[in-house]
């Protein structure tokens, strides 16, 4: 798993646990509600809290937006580098050249000839490190600097037909 994947998983679990604790408290409160026939609570208070809850959510989402929107894939630096042309076609990949140098930027130019495909790039440890759509009639460019030499794999990440799962490029080399 990539560190981003791990981070997403852990961050997510924190919020889930918090949410479940709050849920448990709410559900447990019905025990007390049973005793006082549901009449021991000031509903107006909850109604007044409603806009504050809305504000809290808006702030939370605003913070997440501010931290993430600049990291959108289309805002990445897609500058020059060793150029690699990646073309998807049912059901295989044409990759040219087939090896690049480590620690130097690599510019991938990704396209497709028939239907939509996508380049799912896996590092030698089997971690998904990049996902680039291969759209017919268009080229999508992404630049990546490999820090680790080895054999990388491309798996097709956009459903493209009955052999989609066989659309694997097994040996993209990053050399020292």
């Amino acid at each position: 798993m990539t560190s981003l994947g791990m981070g997403i998983g852990i961050g997510y679990m924190i919020f889930v646990v918090l949410g479940l604790i709050i849920t448990a408290v709410v559900l447990y409160s019905t025990k007390r509600g049973r005793r006082d026939k549901g009449e021991g609570v000031d509903i107006g208070k909850a109604e007044r809290a409603e806009p504050w809850w809305a504000l809290f959510i808006v702030i939370l989402l605003g913070v997440l937006l501010a931290f993430t929107i600049w990291r959108a894939p289309w805002f990445q630096d897609n500058g020059p580098g060793q150029r690699v042309q990646v073309t998807g076609i049912q059901f295989g990949w044409a990759v040219q050249p087939t090896s690049v140098k480590v620690n130097q930027p690599v510019q991938f130019n990704v396209t497709a000839l028939d239907v939509n495909h996508a380049m799912g790039l896996f590092d030698p440890q089997g971690r998904l490190i990049m996902n680039v759509q291969a759209v017919p009639d268009y080229t999508t460019t992404r630049t990546h600097t490999f820090t680790e030499p080895g054999t990388y794999i491309i798996r097709c990440f956009e459903f493209c037909g009955y052999q989609h799962h066989k659309m694997i490029y097994p040996a993209f080399k990053v050399t020292a």
């Binding site: 997403i8 993430t68 990291r71 894939p73 996508a118 998904l128 990049m130 990440f157 956009e158």
Partner: peptide, 11 residues
């Protein structure tokens, strides 16, 4: 969140 898509898209 678009920034997470390299990891999550089509998984």
């Amino acid at each position: 969140t678009s920034a997470f898509q390299d990891t999550l898209h089509n998984t």
